[in-house]
């Protein structure tokens, strides 16, 4: 009796997997490209951490401000590129996004996450930080996180670009970028980005830079197609 059942189940399993392998997987497309600037971006300034020796000694060269971070060939770093229209709403992934306060800096400087995703904030320093995300659409809170205290588990319910600051160390500056899409990327030093796993369709792609705001482009992606999209921000020296 049990052997028969096992056989039957095995048969179903084999048939099931055969069907799975036989059906063509929907070919997913992607959008990739580069974010650059024209004009003269402001010079990033060295940060004086003398008031916080425990942080200052973690850096051999001075930490620079990051509001307009650039790379070689006019590349623009820390630009969030995401699908702002045409995407189906995605459930929040179970992966936790991690945010670190280390050497009196926010790592990463710009942290994208999805609505409803768990955000875990760590203090890796030997000093107290107060983490103060200046949300307007979402609730604004402000919590002290002394050295050695447990990570703060939180998250956001609504899409928003949220500046984050530490009032104790005024040079600390970062952004939470809360998105309703699961397709997003942050540009690296080369300004490159890639949005993968897109079903064929019409999309609006938005690029957001903390100082220069947003730019959008409409893109139609065919099945399995890779579309190239570039963004150029006009940089002002102030």
């Amino acid at each position: 009796m049990t052997a028969k059942l096992a056989l039957l189940l095995a048969g179903v399993f084999v048939v099931g997997s055969a069907v799975g392998a036989g059906a063509p997987a929907p070919a997913s497309g992607s959008i990739s490209g580069k974010v650059t600037y024209t004009g003269t971006p402001p010079k990033m300034k060295p940060i004086d951490m003398a008031k916080e020796p425990s942080c200052a000694k973690q850096h051999t060269t001075p930490v620079m401000t990051e509001n307009v971070a650039t790379g070689p060939d006019s590349a623009l770093q820390y630009v969030v590129v995401f699908i702002s229209a045409g995407d189906t709403a995605a459930a929040a992934p179970s992966e936790v996004v991690r945010y670190d306060q280390k050497g009196c800096q926010y790592l990463p400087h710009v942290l994208p996450m999805q609505v409803g995703q768990v955000l875990q904030i760590f203090n890796d320093d030997q000093t107290s930080h107060n983490i103060h995300p200046l949300a307007k659409v979402n609730p604004e809170w402000n919590k002290s996180q002394p050295a050695g205290s447990a990570p703060i588990n939180t998250g956001y319910d609504k899409p928003e670009f949220i500046p984050v600051k530490c009032n104790i160390h005024p040079w600390m500056h970062g952004y939470f970028v809360v998105l309703s899409t699961s397709h997003y990327a942050v540009t690296g030093q080369d300004g490159g980005f890639s949005l993968k796993g897109l079903p064929a369709g019409k999309y609006t792609v938005t690029a957001w830079q903390e100082q220069y705001g947003t730019q959008t482009q409409d893109v139609t992606v065919g099945a399995g197609e890779t579309k190239g999209v570039n963004f150029v921000f006009k940089a002002l020296p102030y």
């Binding site: 107060n130 103060h132 604004e140 809170w141 402000n142 919590k143 002290s144 996180q145 703060i152 009032n167």
Partner: peptide
């Protein structure tokens, strides 16, 4: 509770 909207954070967790 902290003084929301100001630099004064909440110490409830710590």
């Amino acid at each position: 509770t902290g003084v929301d909207g100001t630099p004064m954070p909440s110490f409830a967790d710590v």
